[in-house]
Amino acid sequence: MVKQYAALFLLSGLFLTSCGSGGSDTKEIQIDGSSTVFPITEAVAEEFRAEAPDTRVTVGVSGTGGGFQKFLRGETDINDASREIKPSEIKTAEEKGVDYVRLSVAYDGLAVVVNPENDWVDHFTVDELKKIWEPSAQGEINRWSDVREDWPDEELHLFGPGVASGTYDYFTEAIVGESGSSRGDFTASEDDNVLVQGVSTDQYSLGFFGLAYFEENADKLRLVPVVNDQGNPVEPSLETVSNGSYNPLSRPLFIYVSKQAAQRQSVQQFVNFYLDEAPMLSKQIGYVPMPDSAYAAQKEKFRKFSAATDSVSAN
């Protein structure tokens, strides 16, 4: 018996020495980056299989920052990003001589909602939302009157997505200031229908979730405007999300394509396909699509970038 294991030793040695080389196929497209953008890219890649069956598209979820690291080393062709590239990353790009183009693909928007019978809330400021949701609010802010004095002295019931969701991460990052940090005593559900159900049947409730889910349930809920960085209360809509005035609860989602990749035909085909399909797919997944004209503009931007032979950053 032991002899067989000795053979295994030898085999494994042989095996290891035999895997020295491996060529890279130009029909491969490697994508990595944000887990927020991942569902859109995955959907596009899935549809792209029918379009170009012999192109192998792979998508990772290293996070925007981790993805950029690989992207700037030339290890990936496209990076999914839920924020713009940082100055420090731009510096790395310049050092490494990596040229890239940023393309917007959709918006991620959050809706803050109350029961339609709630007639006292006109808007929230970010500070009020923070006061309600930050970890120290637990046991302190329990009634509507704790938030603003002239609001009713009734218990406040909170609903939100589960802590594993990107929506929760984003909300806590934008409102509390630290991703993943909030009070723990709210009704959390990964199933948005549960949240809709909860808020729509409870007059003293407050909840938040992805904007796309609000649209499907607009008759059962009331959207609350949130005061933006210019001091105006803004209600989320396709328009206010896409012009950036509804903030901080909406953000654009990007893909970054490297110059080297953009000159490959399979990548060009994929990116154009991405921008064609993104309106429909992003909506299906729960994000807010951009206006059609914006997609056309992104396509044009990409066309110019991939055609240009000089290495001036078309950012």
Binding site: D32, T58, V59, G60, E75
Partner: peptide, 17 residues
Amino acid sequence: IVVGALAYVPFAPRGPL
């Protein structure tokens, strides 16, 4: 994940590389 295993791979690997 750090080493680079991916989340969306639409093909079975053909070899160790």
